[in-house]
Each structure stands twice: as C-alpha cells, then as structure tokens.
Computed example of a mutant assay.
Amino acid sequence: MRLPSLTHLRCFESAARHQSFTAAGEELGLTQSAVSKKVKELESDLGFDLFQRVGRGVVLTPAGQGLAADLELDLAGLRATLQKAAAAGAGRSALRIAVLPAFANLWLIPRLPDFFDRHPEVELSFSTRLEPFDFARENFDLAVHYGLDNWPGTHMAPLFGEEMVPVCAPGFYAAHQLELAANLAQAPLLHLDSRAGSWAEWFERAGLAGSPRQDGRYFDQHSMVIAAAAAGLGAAIVPYDMVAREITAGDLLRIPGPVLESRKRYFLVRPHGPVPEAVQKLEVWMRKQLRTRPD
C-alpha cells in the first residue's frame, strides 16, 4: 500500500478528534471544504469510508475509530522523533516525559529552571498520561506514576510517598483562629472530588468531635484545591510535597494536626534496557531535589 501524505493524515486525525471538519480546519488553518476534500481523498486511497455523513455532521465508522486511535499515537511519536532530531542537530538531547498534571504543575515545573541551568544541553517535553501505558507503543523516555509498584516491564524508582496535610492562607488562618484545630469544625473546607472523605478521616485522626462540614467547595484537581486555598476560599488537605515551597515562603500555613499517609507513592518510571545519558542526568537531578526537600 502506498503511504498517504502527512497532510491527509493530519486532516483526518484532527477531524476525528473534533468530530468536525470545520473545527479541524480552524485548527490546521484550512477551510472546511479543504479538510473534507483531503479526507475524501484519503478514503479513496484506503478503499473504505472513515466517516459517515449524518445530516450536517460526521461520525466515525468503526474502521475510522480504529485508525484515529492508532494515528493519534503515531503522529505524537513522529513529533517526538522530529523533536529529538532537531535537538540533536543543535547538539542537545531531547526527552519526552509522561506526567500527571498535579505533579507537573505543582512539583516539577517550578523546579525546572534549576535543571536547565545545570543541563542546558537537555530539552524536555511533557504530555499528560493518567494511567500506565506500553513504552514500546508510545514514544516516551520516562513517566511519572502515582500508585503502587505494579507497572509491568518497567523500572520504577520511588520518589516520595503522599503525606496529606491541612493548609490555608495566612488571612484565613487568622480569621478562623486555626491555631486551635477544633475551629475547623466551623470553617469553610475545600474538597477534592476523588477524595471526598479526607476531611472526615483527618477529623477522626485528630480526635475532633463531630463531622466536618460538607457544604464547602469541590474541585477535581489538586492544583485547583491548592489555588483555592491560597486565595483564602477555605482550608484544604493536600499532598505536603505539592505545597512545601508555598509553606516555606509563607503563602500557605500548615494547620496543626495529624498527617494522613497513603500506601501509594510517586514513581519515576522508564522501560528496561540501556539508560540514555540524558535520562540519567534527569534522574540524578530529581533525586537531589528530594534530598533538599523542606521540612
């Protein structure tokens, strides 16, 4: 089979992702009719339909669904390959890293200026992955994983466990007199949707009477919970390592009381096999960051 052009594949991938030729055209800087024409030409080359035209919209056929899923990974891998080639052409190395959004936004990215100061010869790119994947299928050099030591076929280096602590903004701390933890029973609380029972567990561990308020604000990302706490919207229970810098700087205050610990940990994960020098540099740097962890 003759390989279709990259332009045809990109038009199909974008149209499949958006389920719209118009949106694909806006993304690619083409007209709707140009995208539609490219997709029809691709269908003609392949010999089967990728979309069903339903009224004024389009729906992927089963064959189109399969191609779209594989093509998304293939194009991402191609981009990573070209990034590595561009870096090599400039005398640098490039690493592609799969990350969890909260870990990247709250722990890793704020520390990266130090890494780039020490290793200007290494370029990093990041993509979100929430679940384990096949390194042989997806073109990643490293991944950050939260959970148990159960990612088959990989080397998993533990980074840190998750210690959950209550925090709030200084003004909120003073207004609600939270030097006495019992005053949390009357204070607005912030909740993470996936861990709605954290405050109840903390109240029990702290020996506080009654149940925590359930009428607070709810969020589905730790980064949002932490931003809300910093804005003075309430008290939050969050991973200590995600807010250690803010606590040290005085932007957040730790509320007295117990620490909630989980069996799960953060891991730095890579496939088995030879370890590239750039990967070794990043791993060593991350371990150094852990050794300088604030108390």
Results as ranks from 00 to 15, higher is better:
190 L>Y: 02
143 A>E: 05
187 A>G: 15
250 G>N: 05
200 A>N: 14
16 A>G: 02
176 H>G: 08
98 A>D: 06
165 V>K: 00
152 P>C: 12
114 D>S: 14
201 E>F: 06
208 L>R: 08
166 P>H: 09
119 H>F: 11
206 A>W: 14
174 A>M: 10
122 V>W: 04
74 D>G: 15
231 A>Y: 01
224 M>A: 13
13 E>F: 03
108 L>V: 00
112 L>W: 01
254 R>K: 05
266 Y>P: 05
139 N>T: 04
249 A>T: 05
252 L>Q: 10
35 V>E: 01
8 H>I: 10
125 S>C: 10
36 S>A: 07
246 E>R: 12
117 D>P: 05
212 P>Y: 11
38 K>H: 15
156 M>P: 02
195 R>A: 09
169 A>N: 09
142 L>G: 02
211 S>M: 05
62 P>Y: 05
233 L>A: 04
214 Q>G: 12
63 A>G: 04
150 N>E: 11
283 E>K: 07
61 T>R: 01
121 E>G: 13
29 G>S: 07
253 L>H: 11
110 P>T: 10
218 Y>Q: 08
211 S>Y: 02
289 Q>W: 02
201 E>H: 12
156 M>Y: 03
29 G>W: 07
88 A>R: 15
252 L>V: 09
100 L>I: 12
42 L>P: 15
182 A>K: 11
181 A>E: 06
143 A>N: 05
280 Q>Y: 04
39 V>K: 07
261 E>L: 02
112 L>H: 00
216 G>Y: 15
183 N>I: 11
277 E>Q: 07
144 V>P: 00
213 R>H: 06
140 F>W: 05
250 G>C: 08
74 D>V: 15
88 A>L: 15
279 V>E: 14
244 A>E: 11
163 E>G: 05
